[in-house]
């Protein structure tokens, strides 16, 4: 037996082990996604077979998706959800970029102390603030408005903190050069710094988007009508005066999950990078 064949055998055994290992994790991952699978399967069942225990109903009722869509104005909830999440993410990004620029590039009194105060609020649960925020919104007449959904949560320290971390990784010389050429601060920020920060910007944007899209407690408190409801709130509306229709709830849940799936598939690189660099977002 030559050393060559030993090496080939060893490699072959390693390949087999790799595939076995992969198969094992595939099984675990499949079990892990079972709730989503069940959600989808239930969405296709007739109403009286939801609790029948079998994976497939006696028929595949695609009609359920249409019913869920019309029973409550689900299209409206999705449009609201997108609008609030996009506007909220845009506002969060703009605010964070401006603040982070000041904290990382400008020199002013109390800068470090102020930044510490910002960072300290990272550990503040937002739930602590909902009662006073609600009273403020009510006094100002903003209950049941998009503004109430978007504005109060666009100023969290998270975005500023994350952006500052990224700003600090960019050498200041680029801007110095631009500044000497007479460019204003805003212009430098826009045309010199931001183009180098596309990835972090989309990370922050995506996380803010997800935060808004999935938010439940605050919309539950501040939204009164179906006209302004977002998707998570809409999902609970299937439980009404006359009870829950589980197959339709699951159809609606499936619809609600789809945008998140798209985000994961399309933006997985940014997401993974954002989590590993910023560590926390989307909570």
């Amino acid at each position: 037996m030559t050393s060559e064949t030993i090496r080939i055998r060893a490699r072959r055994r390693r390949t087999t082990l790799t595939w076995l290992n992969t198969a094992a994790i595939a099984v675990v991952a499949l079990l892990f996604t079972f709730p989503f699978l069940w959600m989808f399967l239930t969405a296709l069942k007739p109403a009286d077979e939801v609790f029948s225990g079998s994976a497939l109903g006696s028929q595949l009722r695609w009609q359920n998706f249409a019913d869920a869509w019309t029973l409550v104005p689900f299209g409206r909830f999705i449009a609201n959800g997108f609008f609030v999440a996009i506007a909220g993410a845009a506002l969060s990004v703009v605010v964070a970029v401006l603040s982070a620029y000041a904290f990382s590039r400008l020199r002013f009194r109390y800068r470090d102390r102020l930044f510490l105060l910002y960072v300290a609020t990272l550990v503040l649960p937002q739930e602590v603030l909902v009662v006073p925020l609600f009273i403020m919104m009510n006094e100002a007449g903003y209950v049941d408005t998009y503004a109430a959904l978007i504005v109060p949560f666009a100023f969290t320290a998270f975005g500023t903190f994350l952006m500052r971390q990224f700003f600090l990784t960019i050498p200041v010389e680029y801007e110095e050069a631009a500044r000497i050429d007479g460019a204003s601060r805003v212009r430098t920020l826009w045309s010199v710094l931001l183009p180098q920060l596309r990835a972090p910007l989309s990370v922050l944007g995506v996380f803010s988007f997800i935060g808004y899209w999935n938010s439940y407690l605050w919309p539950l408190i501040v939204i009164n009508t179906q006209d302004k409801a977002t998707v998570p709130l809409g999902l609970t509306m299937f439980t009404g005066e006359h009870g829950t229709q589980w197959n339709l709830v699951m159809a609606a849940s499936t619809i609600a999950v789809v945008p998140s799936l798209f985000i994961v598939v399309l933006l997985q690189r940014q997401l993974m990078k954002g989590v590993s660099m910023g560590g926390f977002g989307g909570r």
Binding site: T18, T22, F36, L235, M250, A256, S260, V264, L271
Partner: peptide, 25 residues
């Protein structure tokens, strides 16, 4: 193992799907 990145994304999935939908199922 093969496709570590894909499996990681699978485990990440419920993090960003709406909590209400997750809890309902």
């Amino acid at each position: 193992l093969k496709g570590a990145g894909i499996w990681r994304v699978v485990f990440f999935l419920p993090v960003i799907t709406p909590m209400v939908a997750n809890a309902l199922v």
